[in-house]
């Protein structure tokens, strides 16, 4: 136990920095994934044929082993001299986050009670008014659930990004493995888990805060 304390004392600032680095990498990736995924998911509700294709591609994306996807990124981004580091890791994480976000947005908007939609059209709402006043508010909890899944997945996969030099908490774990240092491995893993729980907790709070009361029940 004493050894633990000592270890944490010595490494605390490094652990903190790596956690921040991890959070920024994942946070930016999620932000961009949202900007792509939510509008795309909404658009797909108007185009069944494309929806099928896009959702399948996104599913396939999620089945690619993360280490392989990171590996593939290296030669691709080498062309623009960004083979290792932040950029390839960021792009890979954006891709991983797409499926839960697109699929949940698509499903949530599609599953808005058709009678509610009918009423909205019949009362004379334009499509954009219908979307923002009725469909999105009522689909919000399901869309948020997709975002939370994406965040947790990304925090986990973000660990692998250390292998291509993107930093983050993965650094502790990869170093721990190569040096046979259990302290490093455990510290890295626990930090990742705590980060995931905190992020999920914050998002859950946002979800509850902004879900209309009468949908929550």
């Amino acid at each position: 136990m004493e050894k633990w304390m000592k270890f944490l004392e010595v490494n605390s600032s490094r652990i903190f920095d790596l956690t921040i680095e991890h959070a920024i990498l994942v946070g930016l990736a999620i932000l961009v994934a949202l900007l792509i995924g939510v509008p795309l998911g909404i658009y797909l509700t108007t185009n069944d044929y494309l929806a099928e294709t896009v959702l399948q591609i996104a599913s396939v994306m999620l089945t690619i082993p993360s280490i392989a996807l990171f590996g593939v990124m290296i030669p691709v981004f080498s062309i623009v001299n960004q083979g290792i580091g932040f950029v390839p890791a960021f792009v890979a994480l954006v891709l991983y986050a797409q499926l839960p976000i697109i699929r949940n947005t698509y499903t949530a908007i599609r599953n808005v009670n058709p009678q509610m939609r009918d009423a909205a059209i019949g009362l004379g709402m334009k499509p954009i008014q219908r979307l923002f006043r009725v469909e999105i508010p009522n689909a919000f909890p399901v869309i948020m659930a997709g975002i939370r899944t994406a965040v947790v997945i990304n925090i986990g996969i973000g660990v692998i990004a250390a292998y291509i030099g993107a930093g983050g908490l993965g650094v502790l774990i990869t170093q721990g493995i190569s040096r046979g240092d259990n302290y490093l491995i455990i510290t890295g893993s626990v930090a990742v888990a705590i980060l995931a729980m905190i992020a999920d907790g914050i998002l859950l709070w946002i979800q509850k805060r902004f879900t209309p009361k009468s949908i929550a029940n």
């Binding site: 009678q115 509610m116 009918d118 009423a119 909205a120 059209i121 019949g122 009362l123 004379g124 709402m125 334009k126 006043r133 009725v134 508010p137 009522n138 209309p212 009468s214 949908i215």
Partner: peptide
């Protein structure tokens, strides 16, 4: 189309009230 609908009251069976409002 939209102007027409706003000039016509519309009531449906399952009342179609919006739960978020």
């Amino acid at each position: 189309q939209t102007a027409l609908r706003r000039k016509i009251g519309y009531v449906i069976q399952s009342n179609g009230l919006f739960p978020n409002m």
